[in-house]
Design a protein around this nucleic acid. Sequence first.
DNA 1: GCCAACGTTGGC
DNA 2: GCCAACGTTGGC
Length: 237
Amino acid sequence: MQKGHCSYHTLRCHPDEDGFPFESGSSQGKDLSDAEDGVGDGKRKRVASAKKSQKSTSSEKAAYSHWLMKSEPESRIEKGVDVKFGIEDLKALPNQTGCWDGVRNYQARNFMRDMKPGQQAFFYHSNCKEPGIAGIIKIVKEAYVDHTQFDKKDVHYDPSSKPENPKWSMVDVQFERMTKRFIPLTELKKYHLKHKSSGGALSNIALFTRARLSVQPLTTEEFDFILSVISFSGKEE
DNA sequence: GCCAACGTTGGC
DNA sequence: GCCAACGTTGGC
């Protein structure tokens, strides 16, 4: 499980279909857990203590506005199905839009639920020859029920999730553009290490501080810094 | 509610 | 293909 790979099921999703928004917003402090779906998931539920540390105006959360979403651009067979889904695959879909299904990690899911249409995300290529940021996508539909959780044939089928109380959500994303150059993970890591010691925009970037999260938030500073290094090194805006 | 065993992610 | 990091499961 786990992973934010849209697989081609994406083809079935049409951006215009009016799905029902499955609750939006809210989630920041909760982390692991299912916090907002109340019942349903079996046993153990360590409901996050979303309460604490959540001060200030009740409706206020350090809302993120930028994201980084990982997907695998190279073929890999999982349960007999190829999970490949690179930025070129998104670009090739009708309207260059697809649904980001298959996320099976609570934190990643919660971040998707925080996403708002219009926000931008980096499309990150993972588990491949050259990991790194390949382009920019845009959130075009807020979180709604990920139908693949109920599909026994799907790689990300989750028998523990019931239709009356779905566990997993997805958003629709649209290809916006390739970055003027590919930004390798190794380069980002250099900035991160440097910034960690001397201070800088990427000193705390989730890509390294929470490496396994497939859907991550980026601060505006982080996002802008990354865009700026693209241009420093050659082209881009 | 602890925590060992287990499974997954994803760089290398 | 290895394996470290870390999330999840489930017994107790």
